[in-house]
Amino acid sequence: MDAATIGHMLNTAFVFSTALILAALGGILSERSGVVNIGLEGLMTAGAFAAAVAAFKAQEAGYGAASPWIGVIAGAIFGLLFSLIHAVATITFRADQVVSGIVINFIAGGSTLYLVKLLFSGSGETSLVNEVFHKVKIPLLSDIPIIGDGIFNAYPTTYLALILVGVIYYMLYKTAFGLRLRSVGEHPSAADTVGIKVLRMRYAAVLMSGILAGIGGATIAMTTTGSFSHNTISGQGFIALAAVIFGKWNPLGAMGAALFFGFAQSINNVLQLFDFSSHIPPEFIYMLPYVLTILVLVGAVGRSKAPGALGEPYFPGKR
């Protein structure tokens, strides 16, 4: 295997990982505030759909290279809207968080396809967007052998995801907002008694998770597929959830996990090029994130501790 192949593998890994990182960041925020979010898949679906539609319309209206960015914004908005359902159900009405997440996946899957058929005269797929993101080389850095090609020649959304990892890490661990958010997820009544608005914090966290997962879904539509159909998002939301747990509810950890899963996927691609697939069936590579997550939970690959109050609804005034 030569340097160019390795660089190529890295590069593909980052493409795969971008959406996972973004959605996992969303998952972290939600779960750190105490709200389980297994609706990431649905939120990504909503984001991918909105991006494909908005970018297509923007392109038709002549926005040119701004179209994919409009798509990303639309994805964020749609993610936000769907996460609002989750927030209202689980925070205000104290519905079971797992059930609500399943409902989000249900409704997002159904309603986006319904809308696609409505908007594209019965077709199950949105029209292809030509104005999608293109890879951007970062001057100088991209000249470094292997990693230059691997990391510094990526889609703008990849850079965005990496920046957001830093931003959210800083927010969680350095700001007052982050301290409060984490306290709400660990011990909500402790937060309540010092005057922190628990429900408001949880709303903020869940809505941010919707935005991030929505953007995550959008990046898939705006880079790899250029359109949206029923299988644009198939399982990435759950891999992102796996990354949240594998990354121990920490943004850096989740990024590492997402990159690792992405790298496994790209090894698979490359292996097929080299005809190794007869030795390692691709299905086993697909299984990897899920198997690893179970191993982490079992304690075979380090311990992972969930936020203390994860999954528990909070009744203000009842303690």
Binding site: L179, R180, A190, A191
Partner: peptide, 19 residues
Amino acid sequence: KLVHPFTVTENIILGSEPK
């Protein structure tokens, strides 16, 4: 009403943090 993974100080300042 203490957040166990936090330090003593983090618990005390929670909600009125010096910035």
